[in-house]
Design a binder for these strands. Structure first.
Length: 301
DNA sequence: AAGTCGTGGTA
DNA sequence: TTACCAAGACT
């Protein structure tokens, strides 16, 4: 074979070998995340999935422990007002996730007898559960065979199979087919692949500084074989934050978290002095989303 | 289907 | 210091 011929995408046999190698690597490299403990049930897994959406795992660990201590099952959370969930969410970010998790707990009590459903379709119908989260719960909590395609797995597959530094900006149908091709036939191996491929992306095949020298499947990676070519095409859009409505909402919500008894409307608007109209917009948004509540002139969570 | 939605760590 | 980006969902 000519040395300059680009590596081809791995076939079924090589994919199976890679899956096995990553699974083996996982036995010693896996982080001892508390929700991976065998004693943790589906609800604990589900809470961890909500909390880790767009949030680094390390930041989630302590809030997760506190949450499960307070609400060890869906019914205990569902029995309290959603404002308690928003307050307990603290500074994890994207507080609507707290609202959705509360809503999911209510729905689980109403529709599933208080037990987290095992079927991806039923999971997907819960607020805050998208395709990824449904697959993750089915796989991690119930050992099901599901395509668990998160940002880590997308990057791993982009590199190993496609020879690209990064996947597309948003998940494509072609990408789902690719991930399905990688999914082992039996449930136990598939669940193992889901967890281990995510871990590989999180610890080794990282976005900014991949540690190819310590990658267990470096010898199978098209991207590495091609000399780690830089991402082509339009730059992945950044996430501007300073001065945005999001920052304003975050500021107001922070005040409401610190003052559970409530804050006068004028006082609350005053904590965002950048732009009065923006402060109003932020408050209206929080009220419309159900993250804040009005009682006359008093605003509370 | 491109925009919106928090927060904080890292290089 | 600025820019990137982290177990996404929803509209």
């Amino acid at each position: 074979m000519p040395a300059d011929k680009p590596a081809a995408a791995p076939g079924p046999a090589e994919r199976a070998r890679i899956v096995g190698t990553v699974a083996q690597w996982f036995t010693t490299a896996a982080r001892p995340l508390p929700w991976r403990d065998p004693s943790v049930g589906p609800w604990g897994v589900m809470v961890s999935e909500f909390m880790t959406q767009q949030t680094p795992v390390a930041r989630v660990i302590e809030p997760w422990r506190a949450w499960l201590r307070r609400w060890p099952e869906p019914a205990s959370l569902a029995a309290e007002p959603s404002s308690e969930a928003v307050a307990a969410w603290g500074r994890l970010g994207y507080p609507r996730r707290a609202l959705r998790l509360h809503g999911a707990a209510v729905a689980i009590v109403a529709r599933h007898g208080g037990r987290v459903p095992a079927e991806p379709e039923q999971l997907r119908a819960l607020p805050g559960v998208g395709e990824y989260t449904a697959a993750a719960i089915a796989s991690f909590a119930f050992g099901a065979r599901a395509v668990v395609l998160d940002t880590n797995v997308r990057r791993v597959l982009a590199r190993i199979d496609r020879g690209r530094q990064y996947p597309a900006n948003s998940t494509t149908a072609a990408e789902r087919r690719l991930a399905a091709r990688w999914l082992p036939a039996d449930a136990a191996t598939a669940a193992r692949w889901a967890a281990s491929s995510m871990e590989l992306g999180a610890l080794v095949c990282t976005a900014a500084a991949p540690d190819c020298a310590h990658c267990p499947v470096a010898g199978h990676c098209r991207w590495l074989a091609a000399g780690r070519p830089a991402h082509e095409g339009p730059a992945r859009r950044g996430q501007a934050y300073a001065g945005t409505d999001r920052q304003a909402r975050g500021r107001l919500l922070d005040q409401l978290r610190r003052n559970r008894a409530g804050v006068e409307t004028e006082t609350l608007l005053g904590c965002w002095d950048v732009d009065r109209a923006q402060a109003r917009r932020a408050l209206d948004g929080l009220l419309a989303d159900g993250l804040a509540h009005r009682h006359g002139e008093l605003i509370t969570l």
